[in-house]
Design a protein around this nucleic acid. Sequence first.
DNA 1: CGTAACTCATTACCCTCGCTAACTATTCCC
DNA 2: GGGAATAGTTAGCGAGGGTAATGAGTTACG
Lengths: 128, 128
Amino acid sequence: MGTFRLARRLRAEKSDDDLSDGQFSVLAALFTHGPHTLSSLAERERVSAPSMNRTVGFLEELGYLTRVTDSEDKRRVTITLTPSGTDTVKATVKKRDAWLTHALKALSPEDRATIADAAAIMQRMAER
Amino acid sequence: MGTFRLARRLRAEKSDDDLSDGQFSVLAALFTHGPHTLSSLAERERVSAPSMNRTVGFLEELGYLTRVTDSEDKRRVTITLTPSGTDTVKATVKKRDAWLTHALKALSPEDRATIADAAAIMQRMAER
DNA sequence: CGTAACTCATTACCCTCGCTAACTATTCCC
DNA sequence: GGGAATAGTTAGCGAGGGTAATGAGTTACG
């Protein structure tokens, strides 16, 4: 179960970010997959709706996203990245890559390729 | 950052266990690496001493391990798996493997090999 | 057409598990 | 012998997850 330990390690590494993993992950999802409703976000991140609601609320306060109630179905709320949110995603990706790329540089090209392949496979597994 | 999502997925999958990841991880460490002191366990799991202390306390209450103060250095405490703890490790490993092996069976042998290699590399990275 | 059932978001509250700070007991060393 | 260092522990905080309950809006149907 070294995966958990690596996750903890990664988490520790980006420490002086203002955003937690879950928070950033939401911004990233909005960035790569466009606007979502609350529940679709919750489902995508495999988290309960109330949890996602809190995360979204936090990100809204920071001005990274906006909630707009749908005009057709007023129960629904459309969550969209603000320009500031988009900037943050780009900046954070860059920052986070720093440690990883540093760590990856210490590996052989073969190892790097292995990691990349495995990442793709894991992605598919997680989305199953 | 699909790694976090996979970790969450794995976590969800073993849900009706009585042990959390961290708790099980401690038992597994004792199982594979033998008795530890509190601080060595904390360091191995990359967790603070108080956190590890709580986890160990919990596992002690369940009768999975014992604390014995060292006779030479009475500050130190030796933490050892009980037979019940050993059984639990074996049983839990078996149970946890179920979902993973199921998921892995859906992959091609090449993919499985990739995952295995990557796991080894990640292990090394996490322990750096 | 009106009401019952359902759906989406939200609020209230709790639990787990991480942390730091502070304390105790023991050992080290001068 | 007494101060510094070390191992474990206790106390208390915060982040982030969960479930239950509520409110508002929509849909189904008698």
